[in-house]
Nucleic acid binder design. Structure first.
Lengths: 237, 237
DNA sequence: CGATGTCTTGAGCTCTGTCAACGGGCGTGG
DNA sequence: CCACGCCCGTTGACAGAGCTCAAGACATCG
């Protein structure tokens, strides 16, 4: 089911190409290349633009007063970034590229202006936001109650789901995240993530490359989702 | 700081009266009375309308496949409910009144239609959604890393903040929630919530009515927020 | 080569969930 | 009126999942 990533809310990224084409008719779109570590925007900055990855992976993180960083979102092609800045006119999070990628950006003011002439340009934004709210709810649920290994299994399964939606292979994936980042996203320490990976490997639902530990093979997605749904040695009551 | 409820994202509920008046000029608003336990909408129902409490408290919950219920949101005057239904045309959660209250409802289709003539009617929706995303992020952070007593302190402080925003007393509040519901919202068991309350009382930052345990006195809000920021006997590293 | 960052694994400890007992408020029904 | 049951809340004892601390392996880069 992949509650952590894909959830039951599907759709927004389906044909982002069409959405972009549609938007392009009414709003000035900027296209930009980014590399790993590039900051799209950071928390506290004045909000001006929304961003849509065309390729590459991005993490969105919240830094707290005491310096602790938390990953609150992971995004790829077709997602909308920066939506949290609309209300306060100031980005609430930072968005950082995890690898090379391309991104479209558009000024929110332009979008609003365009909506005066063509109200439909806002629909994808409304949908993306609604979508995000659903996802966040599912993530919360996972954070609250699921044991560590299930969270990680669910995360992997969800990640594979994202790739599948975009027509990419899911039997052999490369995570653009460190164990620390995954842990931050899932509310675990890096050690717990590592142990969960090992456990999944021992349970024969994934294989971890012995050299490059972020290369994960998932021979049978169904085995992984089976594990994620609560068959990790304990039935969840 | 009240990360759980109020967060750093303020505003949406500020003058909901003005927003409603504005909306009323373009969309048919329905006003309805609800009582404790009334269901505004439930998960899976076809999405038709958005709802805005005028008074009363509402909980939004997600039920999972295995029957487990989780509170993912608490709402009162000026919040928007049902936003998670936009993307999928189907409500993702259930919204239930916690006490008597009044609520405005408007059909989403009407809203979109109105936006053709008056694009500005969508701004409050965009802001409310953006706002919600911010809040959810802050809640996630709390769920991930904070110990139980801090979560509860933060929750209470946030709750008081919500009341304060709306001009209500904060030195003596009545929670419209059971310990179980609070726990579900915070990712804790009812026992842990109860213990946290007791601890807060022992630490002299709140007083719990000995008869009606949901009546909480908060003599000094600053003491509570101090506790919430990490002085609950242990400094958070 | 050493330095650094990432990842794994182990050992101990702590927090919170689980299970259980108990008390109080409230409604129902004798 | 009291008895009863139900729901809510508190508290204790215990066990277990995950965090902390620590050591070590491996890859990359200067």
């Amino acid at each position: 089911m992949g509650t952590i990533q894909t959830g039951r809310c599907a759709g927004s990224a389906r044909d982002i190409g069409a959405t972009i084409k549609q938007l392009d008719r009414h709003v000035r779109l900027e296209r930009r290349l980014v590399r790993a570590g590039d900051v799209l925007y950071s928390a506290g900055m004045r909000f001006t633009s929304l961003h849509i990855p065309d390729s590459g992976f991005f993490k969105v993180m919240n830094l707290t007063v005491d310096g602790y960083e938390q990953v609150v979102g992971l995004h790829l092609r077709g997602d909308w970034l920066g939506l949290d800045g609309i209300a306060e006119r100031r980005y609430g999070c930072s968005a950082i590229a995890l690898d090379v990628g391309e991104i479209w950006s558009l000024r929110y003011a332009d979008l609003l202006a365009a909506s005066e002439r063509e109200p439909a340009v806002l629909s994808p934004v409304l949908e993306a936001m609604s979508h995000r709210i659903c996802r966040d709810h599912e993530l919360m649920r996972a954070l609250e109650k699921l044991p560590a290994d299930i969270r990680v299994a669910d995360f992997l399964h969800g990640w594979a789901g994202l790739l599948a939606e975009r027509g990419l292979r899911t039997d052999s994936i490369i995570l653009p995240l460190t164990r620390t980042e995954i842990g931050s996203y899932l509310g675990l320490t890096l050690e717990s993530v590592s142990r969960a990976f090992s456990k999944l490997e021992r349970a024969d639902v994934i294989r971890i490359d012995s050299r490059y530990r972020r290369n994960i093979e998932i021979p049978k997605l169904s085995a992984l989702s089976g594990f994620a749904r609560g068959n990790g040695a304990r039935s969840v009551h």
